[in-house]
Design a protein around this nucleic acid. Structure first.
Lengths: 343, 343
DNA sequence: CTTAGCACTCGCTAGACTGGAGTGCTAACG
DNA sequence: CGTTAGCACTCCAGTCTAGCGAGTGCTAAG
């Protein structure tokens, strides 16, 4: 659909714009040297590219900038990873992973931090998901006669805990019975299926042995609901250094979004579908606040099972090639870490 | 030191400036009506007030704005709480506290959220401190032969957990012995004294029974170190709506500070010293990033024991009277909640 | 002591102007 | 026929200026 020359010019424009954040003119492309044509020729091509929707003009007689479609084409067909060296950044990350085993939650949090330090964008890391997390152990520790702490230890080494109110009139012994049944029945059940299993399979058996069983179930329900909130951010303020975010209002709407976990989950919706690296450019994101942003995501996994997602959120004018390379490395390192983790 | 009229004028200037965020001229004060003098007279007084350091002029022939010293005087001597109605906001908060008992951590987080919703500033809530938190229960749940999850349940219903690597060559039975000793000895010991007790009193006895004891202690050490990180923020982006923060660089330095828990703890240093409400204006804050901000703090407690701190961070041009009133209510509600909590 | 009057200062805004960057078109060139 | 040089045109960004308005400080009168 595009001629070789057009592709070359588009690629040059995106590359330059990523660096400069300023509209690119025909002259500067011509002067780069790698496109051996005069500004006039390039102008004609640029005009065509604009007509086809790959480029945009902020206003007449300004240079061109890539449109969302232009970025998309760039990411899909033009980007070449070879050039850029990410060795330095990869080193930083490698050093991090070489450290001794740490608490799972911390690792994830620190991945977000590290990532945000080697990029000028915001990093978002989503922890192991309910899908693959199974229960290893359930315990209830009484605090006083009406409150207790319920603790769920998962196979990933996470510990979910929640303070709960014990329904009136249920003696401790009943609760202990309840817990031991659950431990026997729910071991290694993914948290995702927890609820359904809780209310079907186990319900009947349970009601025979334990009084006040329904209240206890509701209580347990509330323990696991928190699982979905494992989102870690890094470099939320990084975007403030980018020229496209000098407008405070735009920044606010994005920062507000980042402050709300459910919104972030919404933002990531569907990224887990296919493994590998995904890029969402501008309006490909459903949330309006990030319609001027791009989101690059990668997944990390264990034995083919996807565990979580790593994402980078930045302006559409993002260094896609570098970011994809970085995420690629990182997701592999994470995957490797998981293997070491479960040994 | 100040005449009644001067106090009156200073008060009027601060009040107006808090509302308008713009330098206040002598005419507008005169027109308010409550100071029955002509602009010229007021000008003279303002000139005096400036000389004494209570007011500042952004530039010649602009109006005056309060200096840090001016705010300080206002807060200490002039502010009257009576006028403002905070009923509406207090209602919102009351409704929140009327809800059923929730998990401790959540309550604190939501207090931060609520507070940031009824104010245009950033709220910071620090959870129960190590000082008053004691251990209720310690447990170690093995994941595989080399890793385990250690869980500390505290009297406040918090659960600290951490995945740890088990030192090589220590059988499970040894660990169980270790845990049961600790449970017996460390029950109700404040986490703050945990470490010292661990290494003195218990060490000798322990070394007799348990092999590999030192490694286990180090492991345990790492469990409790996390306790200090209980800081919850609300409305971090609220400040973006304030005119004094239209400068992106300033915002960034503050947001960066807020992203680092240790910095926040540093910011709060000393606020717990006296109970009651404290105000730190501008450069009274030691951290440079918030030298244009004021921090108002209150504490909440249980049976006279201080449990934590609530803070509001905003520009020096802050609605002190209202914020103090709000914090006052809130800290009382929190305290009350604590009583209900421990019943 | 208070106030009216007045000259003066300063920042802010709007308008005019300019230089530069870039386009689009046309015509010439190989 | 594709490519290029030339040129008129557009638009932005920056600078300069003048005028306005808000506010002060001073002086002299009440």
């Amino acid at each position: 659909m595009l001629t070789e020359r057009q592709r070359h010019i588009l690629s040059a424009i995106v590359d330059d714009y990523i660096r400069s954040a300023e509209p690119i003119g025909s002259r500067s492309i011509s002067k780069r040297g790698d496109v051996g044509f005069s500004p006039a020729t390039i102008r004609n091509e640029m005009s065509d590219l604009e007509e086809m929707g790959f480029l945009e003009q902020p206003h007449t007689s300004a240079g061109r900038i890539p449109s969302h479609k232009g970025y998309r084409y760039y990411v899909d067909h033009l980007m070449h990873y070879g050039e850029q060296s990410v060795d330095e950044d990869v080193d930083v990350m490698k050093r991090f992973f070489a450290d001794r085993l740490q608490q799972m939650e911390r690792v994830i949090q620190q991945v977000a931090m590290i990532l945000s330090q080697v990029t000028p964008y915001t990093s978002i890391v989503m922890g192991p998901e309910m899908l693959t997390t199974t229960m290893k152990h359930l315990q209830i520790v009484p605090l006083n006669d009406r409150t207790a702490v319920a603790i769920v230890v998962t196979n990933t080494g996470q510990v979910e805990n929640r303070t709960v109110t014990i329904p009136e009139g249920i003696p401790m012994s009943e609760i202990e019975k309840f817990v031991s049944i659950l431990n026997a029945k729910l071991k290694n059940v993914p948290l995702l299926h927890f609820k359904s299993k809780l209310y079907t399979e186990i319900a009947s058996e349970m009601s025979r042995y334990v009084s006040g069983y329904e209240e206890l179930l509701i209580m347990l329900d509330s323990i696991i609901e928190r699982e979905e909130e494992r989102v870690f951010l890094g470099g939320t303020t990084n975007m403030l250094t980018q020229p496209e975010f000098k407008d405070v209002d735009k920044v606010k709407s994005i920062l507000d979004l980042l402050a709300e976990t459910p919104k972030i989950i919404q933002l990531f919706e569907g990224t887990g579908a296919s493994s590998g690296i995904q890029v969402r450019i501008g309006s490909e994101n459903k949330l309006e606040a990030v319609n001027d942003c791009s989101l690059i995501t990668a997944t990390y996994s264990y034995e083919g099972q996807m565990l979580g997602t790593i994402g980078i959120l930045g302006p559409t004018r993002m260094d896609y090639a570098k970011m994809i390379k970085l995420l690629d490395h990182l997701s592999k390192d994470m995957t490797q870490l998981m293997e070491r983790w479960y040994k």
